[in-house]
Design a protein around this nucleic acid. Structure first.
Length: 696
DNA sequence: GAGCACTGC
């Protein structure tokens, strides 16, 4: 292997901070406020790198409106800082300390860890809130963990978030849409609430741009000089991590086939390196299955290679298939996990010593002209590369093999990825801002502003749904109701229509199914059986009505997991459908939507679907032999996806829920309609499209 | 007859 690789100079756990203005405090250990002898958890707390910055952090939070903390994994910032704040009195007088996370699992894990360290029952002094689960008690909860999406929802009832004294936004470097929205809105809140403190916690050094972002709000206000106010300039503090060193190797020459290159690197490691599991980052199911296949074939006629346990990992796998990843590696074997980005942040694997990084991942891009989102294989950023590398150093020093050259890493790889906000359709984001009373959407102060074209397109869609009026204000009641329902606006509109059409029971089910990934079980190696199972539920009207048949069968089976397994249905997904449906039913009740079943009248159901998705109407091409459709709106060429029950049935008129773009545009989840309904449910859109009168 | 990185309310 030596001739293929050369050691790099970069050490991933060291921050290459060329940034000025980074504050390093090295105060001595502070004592605990408990006054008791140190318990073992107390000792563990003190060993975390963040512990020696306790005084510094509390000082900075006291004196600065915003504190930016750059901390690598293992620094302990997420679990310790909320406790420091609590001990220092930030939760006195009924105030609450909030800490947001991008993911539900992280919220639960961190909250229970902190409750344990503080010796309190989870849900009392320390609590958490995620969708479907609120483990807090408003009277006693003082430290609250929540997803950033939940905090955004809380702003709809309490726009200034008055009960919180400090809000810590964790994992801000991931730059998800909801984190970015939160940052923009918190900056606005700061102007009205000088008492509020923000802590922005990030794993990368882009702290500088974040600092500039938070600096300006106060300047504009002209607060400088007022003595009682906190400093307008955000503080930046850097905290070291506690990972092990990872040695990095680069390719000497670029390769064209990273799958093949990854496979041969796995084999070289296995031949030449001491025991330790391998994690390979590829881009998607295709790549991963191909690599798994190649490695299994290699193992079939070679004793040494047969010691490899090769496991794929991506979100489409069933729970049981994913759980295989966590089983301990037997003696004399070596586990090789071949994964998508899921292992970069969402899942942590223990026992990984070697990481192989292809340098690519699938990323979403959005084209506002065609209104199509697509997944494209694109180069990752340096920040991602470091994150991947860090996965090798969790238990002991590790090695990372990058399937690109050092020259490429240094000179060509972008420092940071493009924030999700600049790669997505923003319809949901815009309606949330409108609901929060932000009128000037185009002038909103974002950490990374999206293009005006994307914003205008979102406003156009909301206008066509009747959610916004000519002045781009939320309509009443429809606009406010759609904003209240936590789903895509087109699904929410469909729900509202179902109340009037007398089919709300059915539409709630359809809305719940459409809002989750897929109710079908993954079908690796059993495609034919899955297709047959799907046919057992198939309805002539299309996929939406088919979902109703599945849901009915599931209820009749008494929500049996065995029934799901037998019918190639994802049991976890069905449980989620039930949860979402229940939440929707409660919201509908609040909004005064009458719950009613239309029995077997699928006309009402399909009309309700059309009321939300009229913009996705398509007509088949008159002399098409290959099932080509054209969208009514833009004459775009589209095809029914082979997984649809209407595939090869090719009805004349359909509406679809979403497009998958590969070599062709495929419509997923398709239902037949009568074209007459289009002018009936959306006259403004199909009869008098007033292009001159678009909202702005 | 083909394919969906990952979250979240």
């Amino acid at each position: 292997m030596a001739q293929f690789w050369k050691p790099g100079t970069e050490k991933p756990r060291l921050l290459d901070d060329g940034e000025g203005g980074v504050l390093f405090f090295s105060s001595s250990y502070s004592s605990s406020s408990s006054g008791f002898g140190f318990s073992s958890t107390e000792k563990q707390r003190q060993r975390l790198p963040v512990y020696k910055y306790r005084t510094a952090i509390l000082y900075l939070v006291e004196t600065h409106a915003t504190t930016i903390i750059v901390g690598e994994t293992g620094s302990g910032k997420t679990t310790q800082i909320p406790q420091f704040l609590k001990e220092a009195g930030w939760a006195d007088g009924g105030r609450v300390i909030a800490c947001t996370q991008p993911r539900r699992l992280a919220v639960q894990a961190v909250a229970s860890r902190v409750a344990e360290e503080m010796g309190v029952k989870l849900g009392e002094e320390v609590g958490y809130t995620i969708r479907f689960e609120d483990l807090t008690n408003p009277d006693v909860t003082r430290v609250k963990f929540l997803t950033d999406g939940v905090l955004l929802r809380e702003m709809m009832d309490d726009p200034l978030l008055t009960k919180y004294s400090v809000i810590m936004v964790d994992e801000a470097h991931e730059r998800s849409i909801s984190t970015d929205m939160l940052l923009g809105l918190l900056k606005k809140i700061q102007r009205r609430r000088p008492d509020l403190r923000l802590i922005i916690s990030s794993a990368t050094i882009e702290a500088k741009s974040m600092s500039t972002f938070f600096q300006m709000s106060k300047r504009r206000r002209g607060l400088e000089g007022e003595t009682l106010e906190p400093k307008v300039e955000p503080a930046i503090l850097s905290v070291e991590g506690r990972g092990f060193n990872v040695q990095i190797f680069y390719l000497e020459e670029p390769v064209s086939d990273y799958v093949q290159s990854a496979v041969s690197t796995v084999l070289s490691i296995h031949e030449q390196e001491p025991p330790g599991d391998i994690l390979v980052f590829l881009t998607g199911q295709d790549d991963i299955d191909a690599a798994v296949q190649l490695l299994i074939e290699e193992g079939q006629n070679d004793r040494k290679k047969s010691e490899l346990i090769v496991l794929p990992l991506y979100s489409g796998l069933s729970r049981a298939e994913q759980d295989l990843i966590f089983s301990p590696t037997p003696r004399g074997k070596r586990k090789v996990v071949i994964s998508t980005n899921i292992a970069e942040t969402s899942l942590t694997l223990e026992g990984i010593v070697y990481v192989i990084d292809s340098g690519f991942s699938k990323q979403r891009f959005y084209n506002p002209i065609t209104d199509i989102e697509s997944l494209i294989v694109a180069p990752i950023s340096k920040a991602s590369a470091r994150q991947r590398t860090g996965r090798a150093g969790r238990i002991r020093p590790g090695k990372c093999y990058r399937l690109y050259t050092e020259e490429y890493f240094i000179n060509e790889m972008p420092a940071e990825g493009i924030p999700e906000m600049q790669r997505s359709n923003l319809v949901t984001c815009v309606i949330q801002l409108k609901a929060l009373g932000i009128d000037n959407i185009l002038g909103f102060d974002w950490p990374s502003p999206p293009s005006p074209e994307v914003m205008v397109r979102a406003l156009e869609v909301l206008y066509s749904l009747g959610v916004l009026d000519d002045d781009a204000k939320l309509t009443s009641p429809i606009g406010f109701q759609v904003a209240e329902i936590p789903l895509e606006p087109m699904i929410s509109k469909m729900i509202l229509a179902s109340g009037e059409l007398g089919c709300s029971e059915e539409i709630m089910t359809i809305a719940a199914v459409l809002s989750i990934q897929s109710i079908w079980a993954s079908s690796r190696g059993a495609q034919k059986e899955l297709d047959e199972a799907r046919l057992r539920f198939a309805a002539a009207e299309g996929d939406h009505v088919t979902f109703l048949n599945v849901y009915k069968g599931f209820l009749q089976s008494n929500k049996s997991s065995q029934w799901c397994h037998k019918n190639f249905i994802n049991y976890q997904a069905m449980k989620k459908v039930m949860e979402v449906r229940e939440q929707l039913r409660r919201i509908a009740q609040r909004l005064g939507i009458i719950m009613k079943s239309c029995e077997r009248d699928t006309t009402a159901i399909r009309k309700a679907v059309t009321a939300g998705f009229f913009a996705n109407a398509c007509q088949i091409e008159a002399y098409s032999h290959n099932g080509m459709y054209k969208t009514v709106r833009g004459s775009q060429e589209v095809y029914i996806h082979p997984s649809s029950v209407l595939f090869r049935v090719n009805p004349k008129w359909v509406v679809y829920h979403s497009l998958v773009s590969t070599d062709r545009q495929y419509m997923r989840n398709v239902v037949t309609i009568d074209p007459g309904w289009l002018t009936e449910v959306a006259p403004h859109f199909y009869q008098q499209r007033q292009l001159s009168h678009m909202p702005h």
